[in-house]
């Protein structure tokens, strides 16, 4: 399945996205493990709320960070997140 900007995703069940003071970064927690996210990944995942579609996520990021042309970066991250089973498609 290719990922479309009309897809709606959110963090998979059993996983939790949270800010860790001690790491000074956002992390994704899952059974008995954790990945530290870089800032971009964290900003994307925070906006994947299971309601907006990916086009809206991209638009929101572009607005919040006053940038354009983020689609490619976002979509390639979503691809990674899918492979890692970090997200689910609604």
């Amino acid at each position: 399945m290719t990922i479309e900007t009309t897809n709606i995703v959110k963090v998979a069940s059993g996983l939790r996205l949270q800010f860790e003071e001690a790491q000074d970064s956002w992390v994704l927690l899952y059974p008995e493990g954790m990945v530290k996210l870089n800032q971009s990944a964290a900003e994307i995942l925070q906006r994947c709320d299971g309601k907006r579609d990916l086009a809206d996520v991209i638009a929101l990021l572009e607005k919040d960070f006053e940038q354009t042309g983020l689609q490619e970066d976002v979509m390639s991250f979503i691809e990674i997140a899918r492979e890692q089973k970090w997200i689910k498609f609604l």
Partner: peptide, 12 residues
Amino acid sequence: MDKISLMDNASN
């Protein structure tokens, strides 16, 4: 936004 890179595994 910085370039998206893979995350490091904390336990490693």
